[in-house]
Computed example of a mutant assay.
Amino acid sequence: MSGTEKTKAQAEQAKGKAKEAIGRAVGNDRMTAEGHVDQAKGQARQAKEDLKDNLRRP
């Protein structure tokens, strides 16, 4: 996985976790849901890059 894409995926997951925690703390269901979505996007990006890495290996 390229370093840049790996960093983006991890940052997106961290952003989602933070957003979810803040949403729960203030009782904002919408923000909590957005946090879940951000985490899923980060996980999907990471899975895509892992797949690309696996296809490149002989």
Rank of each mutant, 00 (worst) to 15 (best):
Q43I: 01
K19N: 12
K48T: 01
T4Q: 08
V26R: 10
T32R: 09
I22L: 06
T7P: 01
S2I: 07
E34V: 03
A14I: 06
Q10V: 04
G23H: 06
A47R: 15
A40D: 13
K19Y: 09
G27V: 02
N28Y: 04
Q43W: 00
K48G: 03
G3Y: 02
A11S: 14
A14Y: 12
Q13G: 00
D38F: 01
T32E: 14
E5F: 01
H36A: 14
P58A: 11
D53L: 06
A47Q: 07
A44M: 09
D38G: 02
T4M: 08
D29A: 12
T7H: 10
R24A: 11
D50N: 11
Q43M: 10
E49D: 08
A11V: 06
D50R: 12
K8E: 09
G42P: 06
N54P: 01
A40K: 13
A21F: 04
A21Y: 10
D50V: 03
V37C: 11
R56D: 13
Q43R: 11
A21D: 13
T7F: 14
Q43K: 14
N54L: 02
A14Q: 15
T32A: 09
R45C: 00
A14P: 03
H36W: 08
E34S: 10
D50M: 12
M31V: 02
G3Q: 07
L55W: 09
Q46N: 08
A21H: 05
H36Y: 11
A11R: 15
K41P: 01
E5C: 02
N28A: 03
H36P: 00
A11D: 13
D29C: 03
